[in-house]
Write a protein that binds this DNA or RNA. Structure first.
Lengths: 373, 373
DNA sequence: CTGAAAGCGCTTACAG
DNA sequence: CTGAAAGCGCTTACAG
């Protein structure tokens, strides 16, 4: 009988030990490497339980054709030596991996953190692990670097944060299952929330409150989701027969929302603003407050993402996206590809998830007789 | 010469093909598994370049003892077939992994996302990848489940979010290098920010502005960092010879800050509040505003974490923690263990990182003659 | 229900 | 500077 500690002590024997090569044949001497070499193997378990290694394998994998008593003995031996199957060996032999690569650009942009959490939770539920690859930016070159790092290991990859990148610039490994978090219809499977409808709903809500016009603080001009949100805004104005004012383009940051907000605060004609994300809406709040204006009494504000609403005062009306759901959809699309591999070039498939306007305290009727200040 | 596509087409040949077992000896027929079996191997590259597999291995690993012309030929062949070394095989043979396991409890608690980003960026810089394991909660049982999932694969693990858990309840694999993100002095290597000094500085700042007393909205009673922040607060009051009011315990959420803030707003003696995190400070803001109070004219507020300051108005004075730095320190502690393995039971070692008070617009002199409302 | 044999793709000594 | 051999720990057919 070999306890876990015994095994490890044996393994820690200096490799210069001359007796090493004359060990009993059951287990070959170890050479090189210091990594996980101290861990118990299926051999150890088999020896202890008095069975063959593949019976250990059967028990480890939950095969049914093992006599209950045998199973018990093997399980006891596993417990005793602290056995955990070597994933590298398993992956190598089985020719597959249970790792999913997740390419992320900026985790602390709160939206991405939610997606990562959703993806990881769903992956876990399906027996997969998630390997994180950080791209230095959302630029194609940086995304490609992160992708290249992953393709040695993974069963498939999910790319989050391509928003402002041309998908054709992505170097995706030819036969590796891939899914993008993107709202655009693409030649590669992708999932994303309905940005257009979100912008539409936000703007229609403001119009329905009696505002003559709705101004827009947009995201970067090269961001596809920013473009779609702006299209929805414009469509609502068109339908209402109102001219669309010029878009003020920010960079998603509260600072840009503040700067552009100062312009809007100075214009007495502005009574309703749709900001393309919550962070810029927060900056807008500041600009309005500093100008002595009240929300929503003087100016109504709608955001997008619904991630800051709980922190702001007054609480922010915003377009909500269910990021956990998105994470789930991304994994599902990936699983479909993993299940039906490499027939033809590459599967396509798109999932558009609904976005929902959450009405809170930052929107109200247009001020009668114009706003204050 | 074999192009990548040729290789793959060959591999996709149905396994019922009777000719399969009579292939030339150079490459054994493939059996079972559909995973990455379509990818080119070192054998393919070797055959194409007219060298042996281990010359391919040398080139792949940047060994210096390869003739430049040979290297060129091999690199060209790699490029041609799209070769990427099989990480499972490499890990198995080398007896080590370049994966680091990262156990996280709640990614969207913004602080954790920053730590994860810092850990991952530093790991990448050192040639490691990061595998994310989500724990359902910060409870020991859930953390242990996440840890168990990881130990099959990784070179070491980092556990984030143990805050409210007794470290002795953690089931850490005996010889696996492990680091905790924790500010307490522990028997296991750990890194964390100086919570005590942060609470001390926040409170001293408020006292120096002339406030008679500083109230405290604390974190959960079982959270070690909440306890340390409260100790700092209490120490500052002690040193100033002021009695410490009772701590109001929240749960880190803005909702709890709001609820407790309503109590404080109703008490005219309250002119300065130190909230144990920014989120509760945001909730406190709301309670104060709804009561018609101004920040900082009537009540000064300090937060902790400095993650929401940019979004709130007025901008929040808060204790900043450098989470990227923390991520770096965690990886460094792990690397030390990986480099000097398993001599004796387990290394210890603690890193305490400084926390810094960032003074912004939410703190000001105590109101002369008492506050409004 | 159980076991003996082979091999996944790579790297580690070793020999030249 | 280059190659032939062995083996990491597991799982996949196959035989009994």
């Amino acid at each position: 009988m070999t306890s876990c500690d015994d095994v490890n002590v044996t393994m820690d024997t200096p490799r210069t030990d001359p007796s090493e090569d004359s060990r009993p044949a059951g287990r070959a001497p170890r050479r090189g490497g210091i990594g996980w070499s101290s861990r118990a193997t299926g051999q150890d378990v088999a020896a202890l339980a008095g069975v063959s290694p593949q019976t250990v394998s059967r028990v480890a994998n939950g095969a049914t054709n093992v006599r209950p008593e045998t199973r018990e003995r093997v399980l006891a031996a596993m417990e005793k030596v602290g056995y955990a199957p070597n994933a590298a060996a398993r992956n190598l032999r089985a020719g597959r991996s249970d790792l999913i690569g997740l390419v992320v650009h900026h985790l602390t942009r709160t939206g991405e953190a939610h997606v990562v959490e959703g993806v990881t939770a769903t992956a876990h539920a399906r027996g997969y692990s998630v390997s994180l690859a950080l791209a230095a930016s959302g630029a194609a070159a940086d995304l490609n670097e992160a992708i290249a790092r992953l393709q040695q290991v993974v069963a498939g990859i999910i790319v989050v944060g391509i928003d402002a990148t041309d998908v054709d610039d992505l170097r995706l490994p030819p036969r590796l299952p891939t899914v993008l978090a993107d709202s655009r219809p693409l030649a590669i499977p992708a999932a994303g929330h309905d940005q257009f409808s979100g912008g539409l709903a936000a703007t229609e809500h403001l119009l329905s409150l009696g505002h003559e016009v709705v101004h827009h603080i947009g995201g970067p001009a090269d961001s596809s989701s920013a473009q779609l949100r702006a299209s929805g805004w414009r469509a609502a104005l068109d339908r209402a027969g109102r001219p669309a004012p010029e878009i003020l383009h920010g960079d998603w940051s509260p600072e840009s929302g503040y700067r552009l907000g100062q312009q809007l605060a100075a214009d007495p004609g502005v009574t309703a603003v749709f900001a393309a994300n919550d962070e810029m809406a927060a900056g807008l709040y500041r600009a309005l407050f500093e100008a002595g204006l009240r929300v929503p009494d003087d100016v109504s504000v709608v955001g997008f993402d619904d991630l800051l609403g709980r922190f702001l005062w007054p609480s922010l009306t915003s377009v909500q996206q269910d990021f956990s759901h998105l994470g789930e959809s991304l994994i599902e699309l990936l699983m479909e590809q993993i299940a039906s591999p490499r027939r033809g070039p590459r599967l396509t498939g798109q999932r558009v998830l609904p976005s929902t306007l959450m009405v809170r305290a930052s929107t109200g009727p247009a001020p009668v007789g114009g706003r204050r200040g």
